[in-house]
Amino acid sequence: MKPQTSLTATPLGLRDLLPAEVRKRRQLEASIRGAFEKRGFGEVICPTFEFYDLLSVEASTAVKQDMVRFIGSDGRILALRPEMTTAIARLAVKKLDLDQGPYPFYYIANVFREEFSREGLVREIRQAGVELIGRGGVEEDTDIIALFIETLKATGLKRIQVGLGQMGFLESVLQSLPVSEAERSELRAAMAARSLVKYKKALSKIKLNNGLAEKLLRLPTARGDKEALENAQALVVNPTVEAALKRLIDVYSGLCERGLDGCVSIDFGIWHDFNYYTGLVFEAYAPGLGRPLGGGGRYDNLLAELGRPAPAAGFAIDLKNLQALIEKPDRNENGVSNE
């Protein structure tokens, strides 16, 4: 047993890495960096902490609660960044001419959260990701998702599946319903909690006609691209909903044209935790990991919130989970112990 004193203890949820582990980490980062640079993305470095007011501008309650906070000498509340997107949006608004875009940025950086999950307490998380700021068409959405898949494959992962959702569609469908704001919030909360039980209960409480409830109920559970799209089509009642669905279909077709249809599936059950997502959202799954490997989406309102409207989209990948999966691809797939 090595000597352990109060001076050599580290705060809970933090860890040291020795050269053998760092070498593997840097190798992984190099393949990711390579994938990003190949598509013309350039690295940015942002401050490790910022004003809490900035970082909480579009954060969900859970993320706000989980921020590591402290007080600056001027009395303002500071926080370690819980994710990179808000800081990069701030950088873009502050430093860039947003009429001249797009700006393809990437980062490989640590983010910090007081995340008391069943993972144990992990307070420092290594992430790699991109943000594409200043242009927001079908082409950009397709590029970002293709890069997401390309990057994961560049790390050596074979079996990944990417779910493609559309927050813009879900939100505009919710807006089109003849229900109160409280009822709408209840439906949102049920989707965010991934609770089909609560979603069904919330739907049964509101009066909807023409099998509308049935279609809404099938929205997050429809499996297979064709079925999901057909069901969604039946919910198109105004141009906003139609445009949101069309965007999804266009991007999906774009991905198919690039030969990526094998690993992408349309899924209206994807509801992202961060409030800032406004359009397409996506996440990657791999057998052997109980939570998504990473994900992202379009967030067209965040920059406006910071004073300068501009479209943007991006994604982030958790490097610790990714590395664990690469080293032990069949960890869970064959059961806890192999027979």
Binding site: S117, R194, S195, V197, R291
Partner: peptide, 25 residues
Amino acid sequence: ERGAVDIGFVGSDILMENKYEVVEL
């Protein structure tokens, strides 16, 4: 939640007392 099993049968009291990232089917 951690993917050690695919599905589970559990009382809703436990899911009310603590928050878990699972799908309530």
